[in-house]
Amino acid sequence: MFDETKREGPSLADLPIGAKAFVESVKAKGSIRGRILAMGLVPGTALEVVRKAPMGDPIEIVLKGYHLSLRSGEARAVKVSSTPVGTLRGIEKEGR
């Protein structure tokens, strides 16, 4: 694995509307972690930011063909990269 303490990559919360990216890793803890993973935010998943709510939070994304909203608090725990190769698991999924 990478030394992730040294490298804080961009998170889902940093992406502007219309941006496309791939999930790199999920940093959330506890039960929220399980929920984020179950909704399909697993490494390598392609996603796109659709819109933000009034006042910029929560955000709406599209992944695996459905729409999901989450607060920027949760979105910050989802690290993303612009290519699916950043992950060692890197099973490349359909690259939109």
Binding site: G30, S31, I32, R35, I36, M39, P58, E60, Y66, H67, L68, S69, L70, R71, G73, E74
Partner: peptide, 12 residues
């Protein structure tokens, strides 16, 4: 403590 998460599907 920890505020609840807001992870919600927006169904068609």
């Amino acid at each position: 403590g920890e505020p609840s998460a807001f992870i919600m599907e927006l169904p068609p």
